[in-house]
Design a protein around this nucleic acid. Structure first.
Lengths: 153, 153
DNA sequence: GATCACGCACTATTTGAAGTTACATGAAAC
DNA sequence: GTTTCATGTAACTTCAAATAGTGCGTGATC
């Protein structure tokens, strides 16, 4: 089962933007993420609609931050991505009337729901500012790194 | 992102077997699960290797229980399936040397690990016997149902 | 020895994500 | 104003992973 790395990816993009002075184009972000500009636009659309970032057209355009990093949590970002399913396993639903299936699903759903709630809670405790601070700490700890992002893409 | 229903499915199969007197063939289970006999054999292979079920060839052959339902938990079944990933989201690993990526991954990995641990703990608390008891309770509560499995596949 | 059932390797199909192209819209530069 | 740059979207095209299916081998029962 393949894992979705959109959340991870979008956070990567956001940290990039946070470091930049002005707007960053989809093209530039795409290179950093080793993907296509259209993919970046697609993934950012939700964040734009949610008001976390802004996009500008034309010369000098691109993506800019539009929120207070202290106030936005990873949970908010997750929501803006469309709340993709967190769990890789789910219930069978092919025989809803089957009592065996009902018994199985009841047992699993409980555990699944609890794990999901825990995960969402944790995501809600981490702000973008904390992530950014962690990144800066790592950069400071790394010898011989200058003012760039420490990237080796 | 599509969800894996193997655990749910295999539990369904096990409850079926628990109700049956003698061996149940892959063919019969496949019909109940609306799938192919080979799929059943594949999914059961892990359980057989783990010693939870036994398979017999030839006339009157098929699958039989080989464990104490009181002693086997959903966690054990999960393990026997090869411990497929529980979470639908994962870390990006395309730029392992990137400090931004490291910061992001560190933040997410923590939360992911906790949720996974919680889920595994819950699965470890439920035995096959409990599942079976729940099924019987549901059947008793259903009016007009006889001794069959209450299936409407 | 004929039939039945599992075991396994191999092939085929499906499905969903990711990448690409194409074109429209809007903003700044010239 | 027209040229250039950048986003917004809608197709369309790969591409890879998961699932399903086929064929044949092995062993057990009738």
């Amino acid at each position: 089962m393949k894992r979705d790395s959109r959340l991870s990816g979008v956070l990567h993009v956001l940290l990039h933007m946070a470091e930049a002075d002005g707007p960053v184009t989809s093209e530039v972000l795409a290179v950093a993420m080793q993907t296509n500009a259209v993919v970046i636009r697609r993934i950012m659309a939700g964040l734009r609609d949610a008001g976390f970032v802004r996009s500008e057209k034309g010369h000098g355009g691109g993506w800019t931050f539009a929120c207070d990093p202290e106030a936005v949590t990873l949970r908010d970002i997750y929501d803006a991505l469309g709340k993709p399913s967190l769990l890789a396993m789910g219930n069978r639903t092919e025989a809803p009337g089957c009592l065996v299936e009902q018994a199985v699903n009841a047992a699993l759903s409980d555990a699944f729901a609890q794990a999901e709630a825990l995960l969402l809670g944790r995501l809600g405790e981490v702000t973008l500012a904390m992530l950014s601070a962690d990144f800066h700490a790592r950069m400071a700890a790394r010898p011989g790194t200058t003012q760039d992002h420490g990237h080796e893409h």
